[in-house]
Amino acid sequence: MIADGRIKSRFLEVESEFSAISSVAGAVAAGSRAFTATCSQGLALMHEVLFAIAGMRLPVVMVVTNRALSSPINIWNDCQDSISERDSGWIQLYVETVQEAVDTIIQAYKIAEDNRVLLPVMVCMDGFILTHTVEPVELPDDVEVKKFLPKYKPNHAFLDPTRPMTLGPFTYPEPYFKLRKELSLAIDNSKIIISEVNEEFGEMFKRKYGNGLIEEYKNDKKIAIVSMGSVCGTIKCVVDSRKDTGLVRIRCYRPLPKEDLIEALKGKEIVIVLDKNISLGLGSGSVFSEVRDVLYSLKDRPKVVGCVAGLGGTDIKSKDINRLIDESKKMKDGEVVWLI
């Protein structure tokens, strides 16, 4: 695209993902808008730098094309790679369609660069299932995008010789602790901006995704499935074919929209959480344990059951989801099954 003159950017070829994310960090710290994408082992190699970027409050945007982690080696989709970076201080948005991926990347810059946020954003899209799929996508007009997302003018973290500042310096225990607490508050507070940006995008481009944090689909039934990403498309088809089940799609996994989840899931008989990751040693996926934790404060809390599915690209079939819903009626609260 750069060689064809379609975008005016500089393409930087580096030798590893560690260098890629470090270069992006440097570019953003110098006041540029930058972009990179990775997945799986590549994301794992970036691990150390991810925390540094969040700590330096650099508004980096990166696409993660979710794929399984080794070993054994596997090139296909699951969400273990980005879920394993959930505590890094990055906002994580999970998309359902290719259209949502396009739209969310544009939104991500607006969120990241907002002075009330100043945090990195990971846009997570399922590897192969979305990245290698041909489907209709409406590409937003450049002029419109520039109106929605004007030129980046950094006034926070910006390396400028005329205005010297230090980024990511050495700190003693107490200031370190204080800054970690501030970072935690900052990512919590970003929820409101993520919703705002989703609304603003919706007004301008006539497409929006739930309230930006979660999307409810026919969620007026006794049973609710909670999940993230492209599998929610298949779940929506299952929901259409049944009378007893609705869907709550978590679009924003970090920060976790606790209040929205409580509101969407209170009064349910059964909540089924479908995870495409496994927290080894916990015996369940991360979304399951967090949703269950969120609902703990409810007086009459629903039965919450978990399902680990789709690891290493295993196809999640509609008939398996139907079977899972039927079986959930007999499952015990807290029980986790593997869809294999």
């Binding site: 399922d126 299932i129 489907e135 209709p136 492209s230 599998v231 498309g233 298949t234 929506k236 088809c237 196809d315 999640i316 079939k317 509609s318």
Partner: peptide, 10 residues
């Protein structure tokens, strides 16, 4: 209409 399902063709 828009195709939502993501499962393979069986």
């Amino acid at each position: 209409k828009f195709i939502r399902t993501r499962e393979r063709v069986y």
